[in-house]
Structure formats: C-alpha cells, structure tokens
Amino acid sequence: MRVTQSMLSGNMLKNLSNSYSKLGKLQEQINTGKKVNRPSDDPVVAMKGIGYRTQLNNVEQFSRNIGEAYNWLDTTDDTFDKVGSALQRANELMVQASSDTSTPEDREKIDAELQQLQKHIQSLANTKIGDKYIFSGTKTTTAPYNNDNGGYTNNLSDNAFGKTIEIEVFDGINMQINTTPLNLFKNIDDVFEDISSKITNGATADELSSLITSINNNMNELLKTRADIGARQNRVELMDARLQSQEVIATERMSENEDIDYEKTITEMITQESIHRAALSVGSRIIQPTLVDFIS
C-alpha cells in the first residue's frame, strides 16, 4: 500500500481527537462523580437513577413526617400525663372531703382548689402545637373548650371533632397522629361540676365518696387512651428506625448505580493521560523530513 504524508497526518489527527474525547469523558466523570451524565451514556443506569432519586426523596420526606408524628404523640402523652396528675390530686382532695371529720369550711376550701383543677384540665384540653389545637379533630383552628360557647357541648355535636388526622409514614402506610378525647374531657368536666354543686349544696360524706368512683373511672379511661398513644409511639419509633435504615440503603443503591469508583476512574484517567502523551510524542515524529530536505 502506498502511504503518503496526508494519510499519516490525517490518521494522527483522528487518533489524537479520539484520545482527547476519552480523556474528556473520564474528566467529566471525575468532576461530576457520576458514571452517566446523559441517558445515552447508559440508559439503564439513567432510568434507575431517576427511580432511586425519587425513592430517596420519599424516604427523606417520610422521615420529616415522622418528626411531626413524634411531636404530636409526645405532646398528647405529656398533656394526658398532666390531666392524670390533676385527676390524682382531685382524687386525694375528694378522699379528704368525704371524710366525716372535714367541716363545711374545709370542703369549701377543697372545692376552691377543685375548681382550679377543673380550669387547669380545661386549658389542657386546649393544648396547641404551633397554632393548632391538637384535640379538635380536623377543626384544628377551633378550641375544644370554649368558655363563652357552652364549654365542650357545642363542639361535641360536630363530628369533625371526632375525625382522625393521618400522615403517611411510609409508602402506603398512614398513621393517626391525633387523639380525639373530647368525650373524656367532657365527662371529667361533668364530674367536677357535679362535685362542685354537691359541695355547695352541703352533701354528706357518703354522697361525696360515691363521686370518687366517677373520678377513678375517668382516670381508667385516660389510662386506656394513654396506652394507645404509647403503642403508637412505639410504632413510630419502629418506623423511624426502618426509615433510617431505608435511607442508608437507598443512598447506597443510588451511589452504587451511578457514582464512579474513584480509584478505578482515576487510574483509567492516568492511563489515558499517558496514552495521550504517547500519542502526542508520536505526533511530533510523523512530520518526517522528505526527500526535499536531502536534495540540494
């Protein structure tokens, strides 16, 4: 085959540009840390990449939702704990009041304290997270206990106060984060009203001691609700742990799918660099002297 200068230089140029484009690709991979930068680099990786991104995004969102669930459940539990203490105190006071040794003056003092406890529980019923009433069902902007508007009574007729608030904590798994204890609050309130009116009317010790049972019944009811909240808190904790491991897995899978192996890519890059240098040094040799240089 006849070989001419233009063939040599043409070939040389083509090979140099090939080597340059390989170098460019490797540099792009190292700069971005990604194996693929456009779908055609590897369609499967690109497609999966979109999926993994969404999955990771979802897991992060669910973690955020879980934070909100903790907030609600912890606040609810804490509130009920305080309601429980108040009832406990009411119980003690009633035991004291129902004793035959307490005078009507003593009972009036006890009644005064009981009334403060009643107000305390009413204000606990109006507990808020941010500016939301947590015991109002889905009517989170309306206070469950409204002094000017018949206490709990009017709200009890609105079924929105009995509705649950659910958030998604995992693909398709919803969790109720609120509790709807309006009835319980109403019952407790009624017991206090009862006690107050009985004391005012000068009830006997026996009559008063029967009311202790009512307080204890409500206390039991409260404990049941708290048990439910405790169970849900456990579930949230489990879900949280699961999400955290899920996040690690999703990040790992995404990275495995599209991130470069730095050691490998840098090694390839150095190899390619040396090939490129070799090509360049060969390039300087293809411009050979011709016969022209030797004819005088």
Binding site: A46, R53, T54, N57, R64, K132, T141, E168
Partner: peptide, 30 residues
C-alpha cells in the same frame, strides 16, 4: 440536554418536590 436527566434539576426533581410539598400540606393543612 433539554430533558436534563438524571440530574437534580429536571422534571422528575420538580415532581419530587411537588410531592414533598403535598406531604407537608397533609401534615399542616391549616
């Protein structure tokens, strides 16, 4: 170049963020 996928700027990212905002709305509808 126009579809710009996979990246953190394309349509799928916009969709993901839209989904996030709806999840947040579910938690805080008021």
């Amino acid at each position: 170049d126009i579809l710009n996928e996979p990246s953190d700027y394309g349509l799928s990212k916009a969709m993901d963020e839209f989904w996030n905002s709806l999840q947040d709305l579910n938690v805080n509808p008021e």
